[in-house]
Amino acid sequence: MQDKIRQLFSENIQTMIATSEVMAGPIEQAAFRIVSSLIEGGKVICCGDGATAGLAQHFAQLLLDQYETERPCLPAFALHQDQSSLSPSPTTNTDYFARQVKALGQKGDILLVISLRGEEQSLIKAVEAALTCDMSIVALTVEGSDELSGLLNAQDTELRVPAHRNARVYECYAFLLHCLCELIEMSLFPQQGEL
């Protein structure tokens, strides 16, 4: 059992090292885009499907409240997966994020999308909706996320984790989101970090 535990730690560490070697530039770019949007009065809209929905909520909450620095709230929220409604809707059950993006997203906002497979139709439709609203995308993806990745353009940033096991990817995503929070706070509130 202890050998297995050590193996799990080793896999996590190797995933983090591999990600750090290819991701420093994209992480910096993603943080810069989010900071620029916030400075210009934009907001960060987060979404994930299934297991990654919790990460989207976590990131939005860290921006809204605080990460490690006492500072003003930043405008961020996570889209809801709850499809319950009092009346039947003619939309397909993969439109729920896209409809929220269309209703709440504006030019200059950021859509932060977190995908474990790159083929979740709800996330793909959310990205398509964000692009029609002239929003920028920050996408956390994995290798083989060609359908979602193919929608991104020069104003978007992809943080593609070089791992295949969902558990390692999820762990890496959580770390990447914490990196972004720290860089955002450091950029927007440099004095508070010195207290």
Rank of each mutant, 00 (worst) to 15 (best):
Met1Ile: 13
Ile5Pro: 03
Ser10Gln: 14
Asn12Tyr: 09
Ile13Arg: 12
Ile13Leu: 12
Thr15Val: 11
Thr15Gly: 10
Ile17Lys: 12
Ile17His: 11
Glu21Gly: 02
Val22Trp: 02
Pro26His: 03
Ala30Arg: 03
Ala31Leu: 05
Ala31Val: 07
Ser37Tyr: 00
Leu38Ile: 04
Leu38Tyr: 03
Gly41Val: 01
Gly42Pro: 02
Val44Ala: 03
Val44Asn: 01
Val44Phe: 04
Asp49Phe: 08
Ala51Pro: 00
Ala53Lys: 09
Ala56Ser: 15
Leu62Gln: 15
Tyr67Trp: 15
Cys73His: 12
Leu74Pro: 02
Pro75Tyr: 09
Phe77Lys: 07
Leu79Pro: 02
Gln81Ser: 15
Asp82Ile: 06
Gln83His: 00
Gln83Pro: 00
Gln83Ile: 11
Ser85Ala: 13
Ser85Tyr: 06
Pro88Arg: 08
Asn93Thr: 10
Thr94Leu: 07
Asp95His: 14
Asp95Lys: 11
Tyr96Ile: 07
Phe97Trp: 11
Val101Glu: 12
Val101Ile: 15
Leu104Gly: 00
Gly105Pro: 01
Asp109Arg: 01
Leu116Asp: 05
Leu116Glu: 06
Arg117Trp: 00
Glu120Ile: 03
Glu120Pro: 03
Ala129Tyr: 06
Thr132Asn: 10
Thr132Asp: 14
Asp134Ser: 14
Val138Gln: 01
Ala139His: 10
Ser145Lys: 05
Glu147Ser: 14
Leu148Asp: 12
Asn153Tyr: 02
Asp156His: 06
Thr157Gly: 01
Glu158Phe: 02
Ala167Phe: 10
Val169Asn: 05
Tyr170Thr: 14
Cys172Pro: 02
Cys172Asn: 13
Phe175Met: 13
Phe175Val: 13
Leu176Ala: 08
Leu177Gly: 07
Leu180Trp: 02
Leu180Asn: 04
Glu182His: 11
Glu182Asn: 12
Leu183Lys: 15
Ile184Arg: 01
Glu185Asn: 06
Glu185Thr: 02
Gln191Leu: 11
